[in-house]
Design a protein around this nucleic acid. Sequence first.
DNA 1: ACACATCCGTAACGCTCGGTATAGATGGAC
DNA 2: GTCCATCTATACCGAGCGTTACGGATGTGT
Lengths: 196, 196
Amino acid sequence: MAIMGRPREFNCEKALDLALQVFWRKGYEGASMADLTEAMGITKPSLYAAFGNKEELFRKALDRYVDGPGGYFQAALLKPTARDVVASLLYEAADALTNPDTPGCLAVQGALSCGEAAQTIKQELMARRAASEADLRRRLERAVAEGDLPADSDAADLARYVSAIMQGMAVQAAGGVGRDQLRKIADLALRNWPPL
Amino acid sequence: MAIMGRPREFNCEKALDLALQVFWRKGYEGASMADLTEAMGITKPSLYAAFGNKEELFRKALDRYVDGPGGYFQAALLKPTARDVVASLLYEAADALTNPDTPGCLAVQGALSCGEAAQTIKQELMARRAASEADLRRRLERAVAEGDLPADSDAADLARYVSAIMQGMAVQAAGGVGRDQLRKIADLALRNWPPL
DNA sequence: ACACATCCGTAACGCTCGGTATAGATGGAC
DNA sequence: GTCCATCTATACCGAGCGTTACGGATGTGT
């Protein structure tokens, strides 16, 4: 049995990308269904039929983010040395955070603080940030094992340190700071790596 | 002509402190008037008579924050050396961000991203963060002039760097990271100061 | 004691929110 | 060409939002 009935008139993935942009700029709570449907070019019933509800839509947009524009994070972990990994993370973050197509960090701006209704989203984002930090921590643990970092380095502390700098850059970007200024933050952070 | 009519039954400053706690935990948009009136122990008409509206209430709470729990920032600028200033900022931030009475950084969590209605608040917070950073920049400029920092230091870049670390710590604190872990971030940042 | 300015509480306002019932349009399967 | 599953669109729902009108309560100044 192939597909039956009237086919969908819009492209699901394109619509998700448009929704992602709205969530990016306004956060989860700040983005209203009216904002979303207008940006996506579809009506509310179509949105609900295709994506379930606002929360599921956000989660799907979030998945699309980490696999797409947010992919620089996982890509950076593949660099050969710990210094390359951290440098790549910080400079790629500076670029991504100021790219007009990918404004800011969804995991930070999405729902840092919110009302009761959005707390499951807030916790989801907290978990994602923690998971990314854990990925970085494991990469740095490997670097310690390989002698790429001093043997007495605490990979967990270093990962938290680098994560905090990236998140601080995200806050700066939300405040309108530009790419070159973010890269200078990265420069300064990298002037002592590893921070001994 | 002294005061006339029925005197107010609640303490304005105490009520402001209670409102501040709500804004702290839920952000500007996430805090509803019902949340606020319940926490403050007053009814809505009393709140509107005393504070104007939600936006003015937030601004008054914000003023009370910078003069009270947020005062560590200005206090840190009075330390004798640039290193003392930065160390005080980072360690005091670690303490303040994890103090149950002053949870997180209102300037970061208040309204990082939001809907249309709250964008004046968002811009106010952006301006406050920028103003704090400018205060720090001027303090570091003084340090350069005093020979306390290398003559080729860029005070603006350094101030942005330190601000980003503090804001990153605020995001970490919003994610549940504890005091000791935040202090380790401060430790790592201070291992190269100034970052040459 | 009286008058009045002010505050408190109930109850409602208009609006927007996220979400949906229903009816009409569309196009593939037979 | 007919059937019918599916999509689209209008119009609406109940709930919650920030805000306010109104009337009764309260204490001060005269």
